[in-house]
């Protein structure tokens, strides 16, 4: 992982300029709800913004990257306890 334009002590990349990335907690919901929620959160954000999704539905492991690919978003998934943390960097596409 590289973030060349950011100093290491800046913390997580900002969702909006000057703010923490929005975290969408979709744990306990099932497909397609995690994708719907993260799409809603992403809808009004500019390209390059970051959104975090927490989901424990195993189908999200397929559908979140599939949706991100359709929209041109970049996604990294990391297991975290009994759920997965999806970090999405938005591309130029909408929602």
């Amino acid at each position: 992982m590289t973030a060349p334009e950011r100093a290491p002590d800046d913390g997580p990349p900002a969702g909006r300029p000057g703010g923490e990335p929005p975290v969408v907690d979709a744990r306990g919901t099932r497909c397609p709800v995690p994708v719907v929620r993260v799409a809603r959160a992403a809808r009004d954000l500019p390209a390059g913004a970051t959104v975090v999704l927490l989901a424990d539905d195993e189908i999200a492991a397929v559908d979140v990257p599939a949706w991100a690919w359709l929209r041109g978003h970049h996604v990294d998934a990391e297991p975290e306890g009994t759920w997965t943390r999806y970090v999405l960097v938005l591309g130029a596409g909408t929602g």
Binding site: C31, V35, I59, V62, D63, P65, A66
Partner: peptide
Amino acid sequence: GSACTSSTLRPSHVLAALGVLTHG
């Protein structure tokens, strides 16, 4: 091939292998 459309709760392994949407 979506989950919940038959007796299975898992989506199609084919759609998953392609990396395409499994819902709807």
